[in-house]
Amino acid sequence: MDPIMWLLLALLAFMIIGALIAAETEDLLSSVVCVGAVGAGLAIIDLFLGAPDLAITQVAVEVLCVVFLIRVVLTRRDETHETHKDTLAIGSVVLVLGVLLVLGGWAMTTLHPFGEPLLASADPGVAGQYLAGGLEQTGAANYVMAVLLDYRAYDTLGEATVIFVSIIGAYAILRKTGRVHHALGNEPDR
């Protein structure tokens, strides 16, 4: 097997272990650090698969997320509480997830092999046209941006809308909490 493939598998194992620790550990801070490790592994995988745009974005966003989460973990109280185990609920969840996993794995067998996407093999395919005429048609040397902001700019508009709405929503929710406490006359507790 290709040596790069072994490296990718090792990184994947590292990420899976990190995710398991993040889900299982008792301490919220170590959980956040493990989430950051998963993101760093993903960024390295992006680099080896030849996607530097994604790697840069992944690193920047991951660092910001870890800073956000650590900030929140350090200042807010841990308000999770354990409930008693409901065997029926857990069993049904495991059953549904297992069925989904089996069906997903079955669907995976019909995909093209890793590294040979369908768009590249179709003869006068869309991807071939992007690669052949991208520089001439858009003037952008970075074809990722040519696709993101020219050929498929409409998708990018939708993506920007999603981020915009989520940020405005987070803003509204967080501000409302402050106002409710203000209206009730509660003292700030920290």
Binding site: L64, V67, F68, R71, V72, T75, T156, A160, I163, F164, I167, A170, Y171, L174, R175, T177, G178, H181, H182, N186, E187, P188, D189, R190
Partner: peptide, 25 residues
């Protein structure tokens, strides 16, 4: 997009770090 994303992420951090219960901003 850079102005939008940068200001948005910074705004969320501002909201998480600075908004305190019972305090007008």
């Amino acid at each position: 997009i850079a102005a939008k994303v940068g200001a948005g992420l910074f705004g969320v951090f501002l909201a998480l770090a600075v908004f305190r219960p019972g305090q007008r901003q």
